[in-house]
Amino acid sequence: MSAAAAPSDLMSPLALFLHADAVVKIVMIGLLLASVWTWGIIITHALRLRRLNRASDSFERDFAAAKDLDAFHASRGADPVPHARIVSAGLDEWRRSVRVKAADRSGARERLSTVMNAEVAGELDRLGDRLNILATVGSVAPFVGLFGTVWGIMRSFTAIAGANNTSLAVVAPGIAEALFATAIGLFAAIPAVIAYNRLTHGLDRLEARLGRFADRFHATLSRELELEG
């Protein structure tokens, strides 16, 4: 019974790792750490995007129903959503513009647009932080795993030449250990690529949403400028 179980034990993931060359072990450990880091980023960003979309729905509904911008900003201006910071940036610029006697309304509109667009870009930069890590892991991990595989196969062939024995029983364990590095590389890369594409798509949708909100708010402030004039 133990003799029959021995081959499968040798081919288990733990056995393949323990019997691998030191360089291949380093590659495997690095890829596993990259996978853990990747999943941490995926979960954090996915939850953040979901939370932001829900909070943005509530903020936009209340903003559309608001009759007094100053009162709305006083009550909701500190909300942890990008919309609130866009409103704060726009109102701050609007107040500075209307303080000036004979204000240039055309210039004020351009400044409002610039300020709010800059706030949208800044919010997206903050939300997209560390997504580049997913792209890096997705593109590099397979090649790192391949390096471990090539190194392991070279070591196996060297051992085979030294033993002067080319039977499958001698060749298989070393080849399996080497190929296991490629498998770990793909295990790290595939979720990273899928998540990067999905999260980037989510950020693109949020960017469009923020842009539409900024345009509506800009139109509202433009009407206020007309009344001030």
Rank of each mutant, 00 (worst) to 15 (best):
A71N: 01
F147T: 12
V100A: 14
A192R: 02
A161G: 14
T200Y: 01
F157T: 03
V27L: 11
L168M: 14
R105V: 09
G122C: 07
E110K: 15
A161I: 09
G148M: 11
V115E: 05
S106V: 03
A195S: 04
S12E: 07
K67P: 01
E110Y: 08
I26A: 15
V81S: 02
A195L: 01
I86D: 00
P80R: 00
S139F: 14
I153H: 11
A3G: 07
S139C: 11
V100C: 10
F17C: 12
L186T: 08
G138V: 10
E123I: 02
G174R: 14
R126D: 10
I26S: 15
A118C: 03
A176T: 05
V144Q: 02
I194L: 15
S75H: 10
G162W: 09
A71F: 04
A65F: 00
L91Y: 11
R126H: 13
W94I: 01
T182M: 07
A141H: 11
A4Q: 14
I86H: 01
L227D: 07
D125R: 15
A55H: 04
M154N: 05
G211K: 02
I133T: 06
D68M: 11
H83R: 05
I41A: 01
L179I: 14
R130M: 05
T114C: 07
L91Q: 03
V115F: 08
V137T: 11
S75L: 12
T114Q: 12
L16K: 06
F63D: 00
L32W: 09
F217W: 01
F213T: 04
I29T: 13
T158G: 15
L10S: 10
K25F: 02
A55T: 07
P82F: 02
A214R: 02
G90L: 04
E60T: 12
S2L: 13
V98A: 00
R95Q: 12
A169E: 14
V98M: 01
A135W: 01
D57R: 12
F63E: 02
A163L: 11
I194N: 05
V171D: 12
L168Y: 09
Y196T: 02
D21L: 09
A176E: 06
G211T: 05
G77N: 05
T149K: 08
A178V: 09
A71C: 03
